[in-house]
Amino acid sequence: MSALRLEAVSKHFGAIHALSDVSLLIEPGEVIGLMGDNGAGKSTLVKVIAGNFAPSAGEIFISDTKVEFHKPLDAQRAGIEVVYQDLAICDNLSAAANVFLGRELTKQIGPIPILDYARMRIRAGELFARLKSETRPRDLVKRMSGGQRQAVAIARALLSDAKIVLMDEPTAAISVRQVAEVLNLIRNLSDHGIAVVLVSHRMPDVFQVADTIAVLRRGRLVASKRAANSSPEEVTGLITGAIEFA
């Protein structure tokens, strides 16, 4: 059973062919590093999977069932979570509040539902423990490091029992030490059987964490192979076009 399967997915914006005929298979727990030059179509592919864009052609399968997403919420319900670097976190709230944002736990006081802070804090604490992250549920996100912020975003994915986590350039704007933290988090997700699609320009990060490397060039998937059977040199060649196909 595959976690996610794309069959001949294309997406064009008017005359621009952002994606042409992309077919890709991702197993549960697999970490796939998606690489490519600027404008190669990586973000577009992520957005198609996340339900932001409907594909112009092609089919998407999740756990072998065909799906059609009309909005991001559809994808979320199907078990797809997107981790945005900064977009999806509220600095003014605590880590636990962010993990539960939009799906807060409540308890009834008479007819009135009130927030169940205690339960949310404990649940969030458990999730951070599972991610082996130092993040404390009550701390304000404002005072957190980039790595801890990622942990908050990723804990959201765990909370919703996501099958697939999409990460578009999670390590673009953070320090080296924090990159290591994020890569650890990705490994942890994979250990829990969650498939991860990691978009990154940083070759060492991708090789450190990915099982499979997929390369997009001008909207076409020109490679999808085991990281162990590839090398940074080969991937660079694929990205630039020096190597046609692999």
Binding site: V82, A88, I89, N92, G102
Partner: peptide, 12 residues
């Protein structure tokens, strides 16, 4: 108030 686009993304 803290991050409107985040609130939107989480389905609020």
């Amino acid at each position: 108030g803290g991050n409107e686009s985040a609130a939107k993304l989480t389905g609020i």
